[in-house]
Design a protein around this nucleic acid. Structure first.
Length: 437
RNA sequence: GCCCUGGUGGUGUAGCCCGGCCUAUCAUACGGGACUGUCACUCCCGUGACUCGGGUUCAAAUCCCGGCCAGGGCGCCA
């Protein structure tokens, strides 16, 4: 409507009944209005919670009373008022308004109900995501996601990692594997990056030693599941002078610390979500691919050695293992060309997946650092080394042994917030059909 | 991409199997009114919908075919 006269002095959650008599300015949305004749109760919602504004006609005066009576749900308001301790009010206090400023009004009816009296379907919610995100339960997911990202950064900085940014506009399309999104790059064709893999490996040849990147990855697969998106956020690390075991230990630290930080700093959001939140052990169980197959077989799920695990197999194994666990020692043929084979048996490689029940949340490996072996492996996968020239050059002039992993930020958020659909954990998800909002 | 299920006011639903008393249920939201302690306030009045295209039939929200979209499952997924 007009420019703001005031600035917020307190979020709703910062006010207590001990502040009785104090003057405060709160700002937020009209969550609900209960008008009963000569007294009106307005629940104001802001990022941190709710606060009740009470307006008895006698005390607030004719004009202010009229102004409050005209308010509608989801109007944006600023209220200057006095904190009143009152046992009848929610949380033991309420605000008696002295002055009200309507900062903006909301059209009605709303496309969905932020007060959650009537549920809305996921599709409706995503179509109106800004309104959906006004709901405390939905905000809780993203506050936890933020806490997780903060924690991951903290752990990695503490462990001597350097945060980097690699290109998302890439030229290569010769790698095989996942489909890429083609884009036009002036007179040439280019692609959106599907992984920072090759770049973070090249950085191992620079002496930066430990790098990480938290960035989007793009995959043009027409998948249609609860755990895939076409744009995802990947937490990627690469560490030099390290092997697969070092990488797994780093992953344990990162994941464990994130659980602890979310538990300690976001207890309110955990409660809002109504989930049971358990901190995992510091060390996660480890089983080999062969052992995983045995578990699947014992539950009647057949897998041929050398194949990736089917959903059915993942579910069977997840049911047996529960929680977080590694699957190690994968057949080399199931893994990308840069994965280091085992010295004693090159049919098996130094790769690992980190699973949460039946959901893969991270995969990593020790990488090949020898030029000749790498070229040989590229050929073995049916790829052309000429397409990797820029990458292979980095292996010619002193590449240290190295290892790393990629952890899906969206999937990790699913685990932390116990969501069943990855779309719940992304603000504006991009899937096969959704390109807006 | 395949399979299953579904699409009814702003939102969420009942009705569909077994076509016709559907002038389509209920809740909530929304508009108007009454009410001084609500907290899913209560009460009264009102507005508002059958996914699209084709077919069967005297008659279609309801049966059939196709499209689009959604949810779930699978596949795909360095």
């Amino acid at each position: 409507m007009k420019h703001m006269k005031w600035r917020r002095t307190h979020y709703s959650a910062e006010i207590t009944s001990e502040m009785d008599g104090e003057e405060v300015i709160v700002m937020g949305w009209v969550h609900s209005i209960r008008a009963l004749g000569k007294i009106i109760f307005v629940i104001l919602r802001d990022r941190e919670g709710f606060v009740q504004i009470v307006a008895p006609k006698q005390k607030v005066g004719e004009d202010l009373f009229k102004q409050i009576k005209k308010l509608g749900t989801e109007d944006v308001i600023a209220v200057k008022g006095k904190v009143i301790a009152n046992e009848k009010a929610p949380n033991g206090f309420e605000i008696l308004p002295l002055e009200l400023e309507v900062l903006n009004t909301a059209q009605r009816p709303l496309p969905l109900d932020p007060s959650e009296k009537v549920p809305a379907e996921l599709d409706t919610r995503l179509e109106n995501r800004f309104l959906d995100l006004r709901r405390p339960k939905i905000q809780a997911i993203f506050k936890i996601r933020s806490e997780m990202l903060k924690s991951v950064r903290k752990t990695l900085y503490n462990e001597g990692f350097i945060e980097v940014n690699t290109p998302k506009l890439v030229a290569s399309c010769t790698e095989g594997g996942t489909e890429l999104f083609p884009i036009s790059y002036f007179e040439r064709e280019a692609f959106l990056g599907q992984s920072p893999q090759l770049y973070k490996q090249m950085l191992m040849a620079t002496g930066l030693d430990r790098v990480f990147e938290i960035a989007p990855i793009f995959r043009a697969e027409e998948h249609n599941t609860r755990r895939h998106l076409n744009e995802a956020t990947s937490i990627d690390i690469e560490m030099a002078f390290a092997d697969d075991n070092d990488a797994m230990e780093m992953l344990e630290k990162v994941v464990y610390n994130a659980f602890v930080d979310v538990y300690e700093n976001r207890s309110k959001e955990i409660e809002t979500l109504g989930i049971k939140f358990d901190i995992p052990p510091k060390k996660f169980d480890r089983i080999t691919y062969d052992e995983a197959i045995e578990i699947a077989n014992s539950k009647g799920v057949e897998i041929v050695w050398g194949q990736d695990l089917s959903r059915e197999a993942e579910k069977a194994i997840g049911e047996e293992m529960g929680g977080l666990y590694f699957i190690t020692d994968w057949p080399s043929e199931t893994r990308p060309f840069y994965t280091m084979p085992k010295e004693d048996n090159p049919e098996v490689c130094k790769a690992f997946d980190l699973m949460y029940k039946d959901l893969e949340i991270s995969s990593g490996a020790q990488r090949i650092h020898q030029y000749d072996l790498l070229v040989e492996n590229i050929k073995k996968k049916g790829l052309n080394p000429d397409g990797f020239t820029y990458y292979l050059e980095a292996f010619k002039y002193g590449m240290p042994p190295h290892a790393g992993w990629g952890l899906g930020a969206d999937r990790f958020t699913m685990v932390l917030t116990q969501q069943e659909n990855i779309r719940e954990c992304v603000l504006f998800p991009r899937d096969r059909q959704r390109l807006t909002p």
